[in-house]
Each structure stands twice: as C-alpha cells, then as structure tokens.
Amino acid sequence: LVRYRTISKIPQITLNFVDLKGDPFLASPTSDREIIAPKIKERTHNVTEKVTQVLSLGADVLPEYKLQAPRIHRWTILHYSPFKAVWDWLILLLVIYTAVFTPYSAAFLLKETEEGPPATECGYACQPLAVVDLIVDIMFIVDILINFRTTYVNANEEVVSHPGRIAVHYFKGWFLIDMVAAIPFDLLIFGSGSEELIGLLKTARLLRLVRVARKLDRYSEYGAAVLFLLMCTFALIAHWLACIWYAIGNMEQPHMDSRIGWLHNLGDQIGKPYNSSGLGGPSIKDKYVTALYFTFSSLTSVGFGNVSPNTNSEKIFSICVMLIGSLMYASIFGNVSAIIQRLYSGTARYHTQMLRVREFIRFHQIPNPLRQRLEEYFQHAWSYTNGIDMNAVLKGFPECLQADICLHLNRSLLQHCKPFRGATKGCLRALAMKFKTTHAPPGDTLVHAGDLLTALYFISRGSIEILRGDVVVAILGKNDIFGEPLNLYARPGKSNGDVRALTYCDLHKIHR
C-alpha cells in the first residue's frame, strides 16, 4: 500500500512540481520508500527539464536528425535550378540546329562534286560548318556529364541527390541515346576521305529529338503553341524528305545512260545542264529549293507536275512521300480545326451564355430598361472574369491554397485601402477568403433606401454616388468604403439613402 501511494504521487509531482519531503505519510521509514524516492526525484528532475525545454521552444527539443539540413553532394545540380533551365534551352537550340543542318550536310555532301578544292585539302579548321559541328559534339558530351550530376524525382516524389543513384537512373534511361548522339564521328573518321560515311553517321544526332519531343509535351495545353509546333514538325519532315529526294537524284545521276532524272530535267529547265562528264548542272541553292518544293507539294497532295519522278527509285520514294503525307494530314492537320476551336472556345461560351440571357429575357418578357441593365451587367461581368467562376475553380483546392490565391487576387485593395494598413498577414488572409466580388454598370442602383444592410462594401474600381431623395450626399471612388460596420450592432440596419454607380464599378463586399 505504501508503495502504491508513493507511485500514485508521481503525476502530481510531474505537473505541480511538489516535493515529496513535505508529505508526512511518505516520510515513514520503510525500505521500499527509501529505494523508490531517489528514482522519483530523478524522474521528476528529468520531466521538469523536458517541460522547461518545451515551454522555452528551444531548438534542442527536436531530434538531432530533424535539425540537420538535407545534404547535397558537391557538384550536384538541382533539376529545378536556373542554371539547369538555361542549359536545357541551350541544348534545345543545338538539337534544332542539328535537326536542320545534319540531314542537309549528309545529303548535299554525298558524292558532291561542286567546283573547288576537296575538304581534305583545305583542312578541318577552315570549314565553318565542321567547326560548328565540333562545338555541338562537345556541348552534347558536356550535357552527358551534367546529367550524371543532376537530381531527379523518383516514384515516391522524392528528390534524389545521391550521385550513385543518379548515375544508375541515367544509365537506365537516356544515357545510350545521348551517348550515340554525342559521338564525334568527324574526329574519329577525319582524314579518311569518307565524307559520305561521316554525313550518314552524323544523322545519329537526330535521336535527341525524342527527348525534345517529350520536353515539349508540357506545352500541349496551349493551343497556339501546339499549332506552332505542328507546323514546325511538318516543315521539318518536309526538309528531311527534300534532303533524301536530292540524295536519290544525286546518286543516280552519274550512272544513268539517259538523262531522265529530276536533276537533269531541272538543269535543262533553268539552262544549267550537266555536261557529258557529269559536272556542271544547277547550283546547290536551286537543287535544295526545288527538292523542298517537290516534297511540300507531295505532302499537301497538290502535285503540280513541273517536278516529277521519272526513275524507279524516284517513283518509289514519291509513293512513300504520299503515304507520309496522308498520315500527316490525319495526325496534324486533322487537329488544326480542334485547336482553332479551342482557341476561340471563350468567344463561343460568351455567345452561348448571351443567347441564354436573351432567351430568358424573351421568355419572361423583361421590360426594355431592365433588359438593357441585365445585358450590360452580363457584358461587364464577362469582360472582368472571362466567364470563369472563381468560386467553382477554387473549390477543388485546399483552404490554405485558397487563402493564398484570394490574398493575391485582392492584393491591390488590401495594400491601398486604409482600414487594412497594419493588419497582420493572417488577418488579411482571413479577410480575403470572405470577400465576394460584384460588378455594376453605370446607372445601376446597388442599394435602395430602406434596404437591409448586411454587408460592408469596398470599391475596387469606378465611382458611385450616394443620394437622399434627389440630393447627392457624397461621391465615392476607388478604395472608399460604404455599408454597415460589421458586428457593431446586434441587428442589421437599414439604408438611409440610395447608392448608384456612376461608372463601371468593381466592388468587394463582406457579409455579416
């Protein structure tokens, strides 16, 4: 019993810090008490220290592992850092350059016999395009090294910054494609005289377009951006097909006994025919423009016929181009109408809503002055909100995010209106959640004399007048207030005048 009563005193000691020596009952000389009392004092002292730490809000209350900052290894790049964003855009520009100039170089340097010394005699450094290609190869190699040090988000939505895990993730992902696209074939085969082989191998750079397509997928929600990307894709495919079309004609031209190829026909049409040795002929500019003209006309199913396939190889390629053109029509131009419709969806919704308003007016036989006010209010409210119901949009977000959005939407009023000066951010967040926005066209009466005042109004834009009878008592403008002081009276009061809008007004109100 003594032991039980001794232990039962522990909660009292913990909360009230009572010393055991003052209790005459606990001072009985028993061996059990002498053993338990020192333990009680020690526990009391420890609990006292913990309570003191909690009340003082000291940093040592938290466990040590929670006080440590997340460790980022040296030379690790955050995937959302500004440097990584700028670097990704730079790589994107280099990939676009590669997609345009690599097929052009591979096709127009394929057994090209233009006048001038061969590239091997001039030297590697004197070729501007080769120098640019070398810079692109170096940048792609540097990009691989950067990807080995860039964080990523795993399946659990955690940012991984450990170098080993980053390397394994990159090896399992895009490393092989990036490595093949970054191989400097110019340096590996330079001086061997195989410019045709170098041009063909350099087309491996186009593998990076797969990554670019995935990154550009984030802009699919913007109709104008999608339309622009589709047109660029169409032009890029036409450019690639033009390079292939020229390569076919250029390879067949020296081996044909009869002059029936499209390059021969082009030379005869523009007065620059090929001679018996295969030299001469149109310039590279004429060849490229004509090839691009043929691919565009074939892809769009126009086909004027002034550039036509004559050999079997050219006919087979033309059939493939027609098939590609039909697929592009289905996948690209078939979506253009939907994209344009999405661009004008706001206008369509406006006309639909206006039609419903006019049908309501016609069905209920609203008189002319009231009908005009109804239409003007709808037009003004639509121009202010673009038909978007803010309350319906915010309803799907958590309250903390709703408060931040409301604070942002009402920031101008909260910053410049005098009653809100000096208020804490928590108070402003709470008030912003209570605001209701209303609009009024010129001549609209917001409050009639004798109406119950259940709200306090803040003028965000425009001006109003307060009338008693036919006498203008006051004219209020931006950041002015009218209405009933909230919670100042037990019952809502009545208006002693009319409140009429002089201009288009936007008002925020808080109800009782």
Rank of each mutant, 00 (worst) to 15 (best):
N368D: 08
N250M: 13
F140A: 01
V321L: 13
W382C: 01
H439K: 01
L216D: 01
I244V: 08
L428F: 02
S277P: 01
P369R: 03
N250Y: 13
I177V: 14
V289C: 01
F171V: 13
A449Y: 13
F360Y: 03
K285S: 10
T113H: 11
E252G: 03
T203G: 05
L428Q: 13
T438K: 06
E115G: 14
P441M: 09
A330P: 13
I91E: 01
H169V: 04
V289L: 01
E64D: 10
A403H: 03
Q379H: 15
T311W: 01
L413M: 10
V321A: 01
A338G: 03
A440H: 14
A107P: 01
V302A: 03
H162T: 10
G123F: 15
L187S: 13
E157L: 14
H408S: 01
F108K: 02
S283N: 10
N410M: 06
T438R: 08
P419T: 09
K84V: 03
G303R: 01
I183Q: 03
L279C: 13
A119P: 07
R165A: 14
L414P: 01
L209M: 10
K425H: 09
T352V: 08
P254N: 15
C243R: 01
Y329H: 15
I72W: 14
G426N: 04
E64P: 14
R218Q: 09
R71F: 14
R429H: 01
I405C: 05
N386L: 07
L323K: 01
T347L: 06
V180A: 13
Y97V: 01
H239A: 01
N391M: 09
S345Y: 14
L209N: 01
R211T: 01
A182R: 01
R349M: 05
G278L: 01
L227K: 01
L110D: 15
R259G: 15
E314H: 01
I405D: 01
A403V: 04
V226K: 10
I146H: 01
T233V: 12
S345L: 08
C122V: 01
P163T: 05
I144D: 01
S331V: 12
S331H: 01
I189L: 11
A238C: 03
S277N: 15
V86L: 15
